[in-house]
C-alpha cells in the first residue's frame, strides 16, 4: 500500500507542473459553459413545456460540469499510458516488483486529481460572481453539499476504473485515436454531457440510470442542486459502489489475461 501511496504522491506533484495547459483549459471551459448556458436559456425562454429543472439549477449543473471536467471526462487521455503500450516501454513497467493494475490506477487517479485541482477553483469563483440565474448557485443544503463531495470523489474512483479498461484495451487495438473516439462519443452522450440527463425523455432516463455513466458527474451535480434530494440518493450511492467493483474486477482480470500473452517486440 505504501508503495502505491508514494507513487501517487510522486505522479500527483509531477502533474501539478502543467500550469499553462491548465490556464488554457480553464479558458476553454468558460467559453463552453457560457455557450451551453446561452443555448439552454434560449430554449427555456421559448418553450412553454414544463421544465424538468429550473434555469438556476441547470446553470449550476453546467458550471459544476465545467469545473470538475477533469474528474468526469470519460475519454480523458493519460498520454503516458498509451505511449508506454505502443512504444513497448511497458516492458519496464512489467519488470517492476509491484502489481500493474494498482500502479496504473494510482497513475490515472493522480493525473485527474491534479488536473482538477489546477482548474476547479477559478471556474467556481468566477461563475459564482455571475448574475442570477446565469451563475453558480449555493448548494441546496449543507447535507447535500457534503454528499455532493462524497459522491463526486466516489464517482471519480468509478471513472478511473472505466479509463483503466479503455487503456487496457489498447493492448488489443494499439490505436489510441480509434478506441478513444468510439468509446468517448458514446459514453459522453450516455453520461449526460451532451445534454443533461434530466432534460432527456423519461424512458431514456430510466435506461441510462441503470448504466454506470451518469454516476460520475450527473449524479453528484444533481445532488448539489437539490434535483436529487439527499433522502433519495441511496440508490445512486449503492450503484456507484457496485459499478466500481464490477469495472475494477473486469480490469484486473482482463489485464492479468493479457499479461500472460504479452509479447514485447524487441527494440
Amino acid at each position: 500500500m505504501r508503495t502505491y501511496l508514494s507513487f501517487f504522491r510522486m505522479r500527483f506533484l509531477m502533474n501539478l507542473q502543467y500550469k499553462v495547459a491548465a490556464w488554457a483549459g480553464m479558458a476553454t471551459q468558460f467559453v463552453w459553459g457560457g455557450m451551453y448556458i446561452l443555448l439552454f436559456s434560449a430554449i427555456y425562454s421559448f418553450s412553454s413545456a414544463p421544465k424538468p429543472m429550473g434555469l438556476d439549477q441547470l446553470t449550476t449543473y453546467i458550471w459544476l460540469q465545467q469545473a470538475f471536467l477533469a474528474l468526469i471526462m470519460l475519454w480523458y487521455r493519460d498520454g503516458g499510458l498509451f505511449d508506454l503500450i505502443i512504444s513497448g516501454n511497458v516492458a519496464y513497467e512489467l519488470v517492476r516488483p509491484v502489481r500493474l493494475y494498482p500502479m496504473w490506477y494510482t497513475r490515472l487517479l493522480s493525473h485527474r486529481l491534479a488536473g482538477v485541482l489546477l482548474r476547479f477553483a477559478p471556474i467556481l469563483l468566477v461563475s459564482m460572481l455571475l448574475p442570477y440565474p446565469y451563475g453558480l448557485s449555493a448548494p441546496e443544503s449543507l447535507s447535500s453539499f457534503l454528499l455532493f463531495i462524497a459522491t463526486l470523489l466516489n464517482g471519480t474512483l468509478l471513472t478511473v476504473a472505466y479509463s483503466m479498461i479503455i487503456s487496457i484495451s489498447m493492448f488489443r487495438t494499439l490505436s489510441a485515436v480509434g478506441s478513444l473516439t468510439l468509446f468517448g462519443l458514446v459514453s459522453e452522450f450516455l453520461a449526460g454531457m451532451v445534454i443533461p440527463l434530466p432534460l432527456m425523455p423519461l424512458g431514456l432516463q430510466k435506461i441510462l440510470m441503470v448504466l454506470p455513466f451518469w454516476l460520475t458527474g450527473d449524479f453528484p451535480f444533481r445532488i448539489y442542486t437539490g434535483h436529487i434530494p439527499v433522502s433519495d440518493a441511496l440508490y445512486g450511492v449503492a450503484m456507484q459502489f457496485a459499478w466500481t467493483i464490477v469495472l475494477v474486477s473486469i480490469g484486473i482480470i482482463w489485464l492479468r489475461r493479457i499479461q500472460r500473452k504479452i509479447i514485447i517486440q524487441g527494440g
Binding site: Y44, S48, A49
Partner: peptide, 27 residues
C-alpha cells in the same frame, strides 16, 4: 476505427438536438 467514430459523431451530436426539440418543442 476512426472512420466508425467519425460516422457516430454527428449522430450523438444530433441526438442531443433532437431530444431537446422533442422535449421542448421548436427551438
Amino acid at each position: 476505427m476512426v472512420l466508425i467514430g467519425q460516422l457516430i459523431y454527428p449522430i450523438t451530436l444530433f441526438a442531443g438536438v433532437y431530444l431537446l426539440v422533442s422535449r421542448f418543442g421548436e427551438i
